[in-house]
Computed example of a mutant assay.
Amino acid sequence: MKRMPRRQFLLAASALVAVPLAGARADAKKPLRIVWFSAGEPASHTPYTEAFRDGLRELGYREGRDVAIDYRWRGETLKTYRWMASDIVEEKPDLIVATCEISARAAMGATQKIPIVMAASTDPVAHGLVASLARPGRNVTGLSLNEIEIVAKRLELLRDVVPGLRRVGAIMPADEPISQVELARLEQLTRAARLELVSYRAPGADFEAAFSAMRKAQVQGILDYSALSVTFPYQREFTALALESGIPVAYSLREMVEAGGLMSYGPVAKALFHRAAYYVDRIAKGAKPGELPIEQPTRFELAINLKTAQALKIEFSPALRLRADAVVG
Results as ranks from 00 to 15, higher is better:
269 A>I: 15
165 L>F: 04
275 R>F: 01
145 L>G: 06
249 V>H: 06
97 V>M: 04
144 S>M: 04
247 I>Y: 08
238 F>I: 00
25 R>L: 08
250 A>T: 09
45 H>W: 15
280 V>K: 03
282 R>Y: 11
79 K>W: 10
272 L>Q: 15
161 V>Y: 01
312 L>R: 11
192 A>K: 11
171 I>F: 10
283 I>M: 05
102 I>M: 00
163 P>E: 03
169 G>D: 02
301 E>H: 08
60 G>P: 05
225 Y>F: 15
135 R>V: 06
53 R>W: 14
152 A>W: 00
60 G>I: 06
315 E>V: 02
191 R>F: 00
231 T>D: 09
23 G>E: 02
57 R>I: 04
60 G>T: 04
319 A>N: 07
67 V>L: 01
285 K>F: 07
13 A>L: 14
43 A>C: 05
187 E>V: 07
106 A>W: 13
320 L>T: 13
45 H>N: 13
121 S>L: 03
249 V>T: 08
309 A>C: 10
23 G>H: 10
41 E>Y: 11
11 L>Y: 12
8 Q>V: 11
9 F>H: 14
219 V>M: 04
212 S>P: 00
245 S>V: 09
225 Y>D: 09
168 V>P: 02
14 S>V: 06
222 I>S: 00
277 A>N: 08
64 G>N: 09
229 S>I: 02
197 L>T: 07
41 E>S: 11
220 Q>H: 06
125 V>S: 14
299 R>P: 01
101 E>D: 15
322 L>C: 01
59 L>G: 12
239 T>K: 00
303 A>P: 01
195 L>E: 03
222 I>Q: 04
61 Y>P: 09
85 A>R: 12
158 L>T: 01
313 K>E: 13
180 Q>K: 14
212 S>R: 03
104 A>F: 08
157 L>S: 08
56 L>S: 10
10 L>K: 11
264 S>D: 10
89 V>Y: 06
215 R>H: 05
109 G>D: 13
99 T>E: 10
162 V>I: 00
310 Q>K: 14
235 Q>E: 03
46 T>A: 14
224 D>W: 12
139 N>W: 05
157 L>M: 08
42 P>A: 14
31 P>E: 03
192 A>S: 04
51 A>T: 10
223 L>K: 05
60 G>E: 11
172 M>F: 15
286 G>D: 10
255 E>K: 12
111 T>S: 15
126 A>W: 07
296 Q>I: 03
126 A>K: 12
98 A>W: 00
84 M>A: 05
267 P>M: 10
32 L>P: 06
32 L>D: 07
245 S>K: 07
248 P>N: 01
39 A>N: 15
5 P>T: 14
313 K>F: 02
151 V>H: 02
238 F>K: 02
131 A>Y: 12
23 G>M: 01
57 R>H: 12
55 G>I: 02
318 P>D: 08
261 G>I: 01
165 L>G: 04
221 G>A: 12
209 A>H: 10
211 F>A: 04
144 S>L: 04
329 G>I: 05
112 Q>I: 00
151 V>G: 02
103 S>G: 13
42 P>W: 14
270 K>E: 13
272 L>Y: 14
9 F>D: 08
93 P>M: 04
155 L>I: 07
236 R>Y: 06
30 K>M: 09
300 F>A: 09
70 D>H: 07
94 D>M: 03
16 L>C: 12
125 V>H: 11
201 R>A: 13
193 A>I: 01
5 P>Q: 12
312 L>A: 13
163 P>C: 00
